[in-house]
Design a binder for these strands. Structure first.
Lengths: 159, 159
DNA sequence: TCTTGAGCTAAAGTTAGGTTTAGGAATTAC
DNA sequence: GTAATTCCTAAACCTAACTTTAGCTCAAGA
């Protein structure tokens, strides 16, 4: 168990439960920046244990590695992050998180009003063309539940 | 625009906004089962427009194709799904969905008590070893925020 | 009819997020 | 001092969810 002069990748892996290969991958993705010792081996700050943990937690919330890299950019490069640094990053993280949950809840509520009730009255369906898909490669609106507004539901019942 | 005898893959693609290749892929994954016309081309039921839409919506909620296939299994094979069929499948879908949202909200609340407050008092952190990771390949508990319960935070402040 | 767009298959390529393998070099343990 | 770990890089491989490509056939319209 190394003390000063940084910790090894194996120890970091052991402490976080991550695979060594995953940590190297995170380095390649710019999520952590170890230095090298005389023999060329990676050395990490103890604070990177927390950093790795943050990555794992953010992933559970469904954030991509580039997004997480964005969050981590607000951490100081030169020194060990303080309480305040983490509080700041957490606030940022939390607001993205709230947004994500809100989107899911909104979608769920729309589902209730649409196929949730079994009515299948698509002209009023709120689920067609939701925000997410709206931003896609200029293909015009997508009528998600299968009907453009002017099409009547009856058409769907031919064999 | 074909009328009886089923619709073509191109028309289905146009109506749903999906790529033709995606629909073929869904067929390969068992999410839809078109028949073939005399010339060997795929023919879909009009009801498959709705089926495709359901797939797209479920994907927005983060369900995988195998999971979605599971939902769709409860739809009748031989006939056009009715109002009741969709209501049934939606209920099933909705309960999975609620569960997913609940998990996210729980995680968020834990985040508030952990890094959210900036206190970094990890011995009390509820985010270490959350349910999701607990089920992983028998590696023992993972202390997500970087500290096993008996380790004091001070250790992390060496350069 | 004939041409052109739509469809077909099989295989390869793509992105994300990694893991595995091969062949060495550095560290650690005894 | 030597043997066992650990670590190194580069490249290949993996899954999910598709897209692209190549070469060919089918179908629809002027």
């Amino acid at each position: 168990m190394p003390q000063s002069a940084g910790i090894s990748i194996g120890y970091l892996a052991e402490r976080t439960g991550l695979a060594v290969s995953a940590i190297r991958y995170y380095e390649a993705q710019g999520l952590v920046e170890p230095w090298r010792n005389a023999g060329g081996q990676r050395r990490f700050h103890r604070a990177d244990i927390r950093r790795m943990s943050f990555i794992m937690i953010a992933q559970q919330f469904g954030f991509s590695l580039p997004e997480i890299r964005g969050f981590l950019r607000s951490l100081p490069g030169g020194r060990t992050p303080t309480k305040e640094d983490w509080a700041f990053i957490s606030e940022n993280f939390r607001s993205h998180l709230d947004q994500r949950i809100e989107t899911l809840v909104k979608l769920r509520d729309n589902l209730d009003g649409c196929i949730g009730c079994g009515c299948l009255s698509l002209p009023n369906c709120k689920l067609y063309n939701p925000e997410d898909r709206a931003a896609q490669k200029g293909q015009g609106p997508r009528y998600l539940m299968g009907d453009s507004p002017e099409t009547e539901i009856a058409a769907e019942n031919d064999p």
